[in-house]
Design a protein around this nucleic acid. Structure first.
Length: 277
DNA sequence: GTCCATGTTCTTTA
DNA sequence: CTAAAGAACATGGA
């Protein structure tokens, strides 16, 4: 599941490969993965016509989005969904199954977007649309007073609020569970009942979890690979995610699994006690 | 063959 | 009307 640390690792590994190159050729194997941010344009959108011949001047991340900036300021982004990969091919090879888009670059490298489940895709923004108008703040630079305010505005399980990209951008199922454990907060705690102190502790836990995951090049649970097709190692350091029934690494109590907001949720019933309400 | 994994969007419910 | 909860999507693996 590519979340913020995985997307950051992909961007970091791809920057030296793609920034400064021009797009020589575009192979689009599946038209449906291309979207226009807004607009009901009746005429079919020609991604290749927009991209070919243009230089990539920047590759950045916002939330879980990988943002390409072109020389004239036009932008598009790739979202990896659940199973997406964005991989630089350093030698010419045949595209694998589920390769939906291939960019051929002026330095001879290929950039493949591969996504079996097709929850991901490419969003063309052009020169006017912003890549993140609908996203909440970045967790790594967020301040606790701001998070406290936005959590107070919504009455639902804190886990559901943290998964909401409008509230905070970049967290997914793995890092929300890990951060809630690190902060000793039960995932079903109602978001508007957290104190400022608890919120500050939660944000510290989010930041340290994400920074550690970035340092370990992300979590390769199922499909994730970085831009050079290499796995991350943070999955070996998960304390609760996917560890149902195994002993809590802090107190030894068997970890529990519940379904919250339709998502599997692992936590320690002793370290993260249910809030009495 | 059934069920489950999950990010986002769409639909339904309260 | 709003907010929250739930379903749907797609495919491979258990």
């Amino acid at each position: 599941m590519p979340e913020l640390p995985e997307v950051q690792t992909i961007v970091s590994t791809l920057q030296p490969v793609v920034v400064g190159t021009a797009i020589k050729k575009v192979e689009l194997f599946r038209r449906e993965i291309v979207h226009l941010e807004k607009s009901t344009a009746a005429e079919p959108f020609d991604l290749a016509a927009q991209l070919v011949g243009r230089q990539i001047t920047a590759l950045t991340r916002r939330g879980k989005r990988i943002i390409f900036t072109l020389k004239d300021g036009a932008q598009f982004y790739i979202h990896l969904g659940m199973t997406g990969r964005l991989i630089a091919q350093h030698k010419p090879i045949e595209p694998v199954k589920h390769t939906h888009l291939r960019l051929m670059l002026s330095n001879g490298k290929l950039l493949d977007f591969i996504d079996p489940r097709r929850f991901g895709g490419v969003w063309w923004l052009g020169q006017d649309a912003r890549p993140d108008g609908d996203l909440g703040p970045e967790p790594l630079t967020l301040r606790s007073a701001e998070l406290y305010q936005s959590l107070a505005k919504t009455h639902r399980a804190v886990k559901s609020a943290l998964l909401d990209q409008h509230v905070i951008a970049g967290l997914g199922n793995i890092y929300v569970d890990e951060a809630l454990f690190a902060a000793s907060i039960h995932p079903a705690t109602l978001s508007d009942t957290l104190s400022l102190e608890q919120t500050a502790a939660l944000l510290r836990a989010i930041k340290s979890t994400l920074n550690s995951a970035i340092k370990h090049r992300g979590s390769s649970v199922h499909d994730y690979r970085d831009g050079n097709n290499e796995a991350g190692v943070f999955q070996t350091l998960h304390k609760v995610y996917n560890r149902k029934g195994q002993p809590c690494l802090r107190c030894g109590t068997p970890l529990q699994r519940i379904v919250l907001g339709g998502r599997g949720t692992c936590f320690c019933p002793k370290c993260q006690p249910e809030p009495n309400s």
